[in-house]
Amino acid sequence: MDINTKKLKKNAFRVTKQRGYTASRVRIPGGHLKAELLPQLQEIAETYGNGTLHITSRQGFEIPGIPYEKMQEVNEKLQPIIEATDINQPERDKGYSASGTRNITACVGARVCPYGCYDTTAFAQKIEKEIFPHDLHFKVALTGCPNDCAKVRMHDFGIMGMTEPQLDPSRCVDCGACVKYCRTKSVDALKTVNNKPVRDTEKCIGCGECVINCPTRAWTRSKEKYYRLVLMGRTGKRNPRLAEDFIKWVDEKSIIQIIKNTYPFVTEYIAKDAPGGKEHIGYIIDRTGFEEYKKWALKDVELSPKAEVNQRLYWKGPKYHTYG
């Protein structure tokens, strides 16, 4: 048996424990799919695989037990799924064309969740269209609100939804709900002055608890959707760590631009001997310094006046091994 494992990996298959058998990895950008795709996955699993599916930690499906010689047939069967999930593909019927940049994950967001501040899946799909396919190892995740159910702080780029609460004082009756819930469920950014809530804009994290708990529609959500962009969280062997805040109240367009700007930065500075040509971006920034990264990241980015940029970022986390 003669298999080019480098090509196989790029094609979103993997070398498995079982000699002679591979597993196909299907990505669902933003984690939300039409239920009609499931029977197609079932068919592939039952026809070519061992009849099981693994739901991956990055919101995909892994179909194990596929004989290597069936990869092309599986790729052809994957074609309608790739199209239905609107994945950029240079050549039809050839499956996925790169697997470096990982599936963009998202919590269920505002399509379902009352706390969600935006449509996480839609934004994930938008980013997908901009950055895929790519061989570089990028991890992006989106979560609807500062609860961070999607654990975006363990990603290179973590996007958290925010809303800027708008108060119509003429509808406020000083029931105290916003102040109470901000204190007990969020960050205590509200206090009552002259019978009306006053928001500490520095403290406020834009979670929307005040809006959710307001019984009179005195508090409403801003028309604009805002985000908190956190950077360079990671799991892994050497120095796992949580992402640190980069920009608060940032807009969608700027986030996409910053992620796109990071690709040439990585290309420039990635370790020449990086195993498999992959290196966590964070380790690269550890070498270049954040200032250098920031220069690249913010190139041509027009932030709104509302955006609050952290000029210096310091990461923590246990250091089991210092690179280089």
């Binding site: 505002a110 009352p114 969600g116 501040c117 935006y118 809303t163 929307g208 529609r217 409403t220």
Partner: peptide, 15 residues
Amino acid sequence: KFVGGNTFTDVDVIR
């Protein structure tokens, strides 16, 4: 109709 004016994201309120 107040577009997006309800409790949850992108939900309208009629008042």
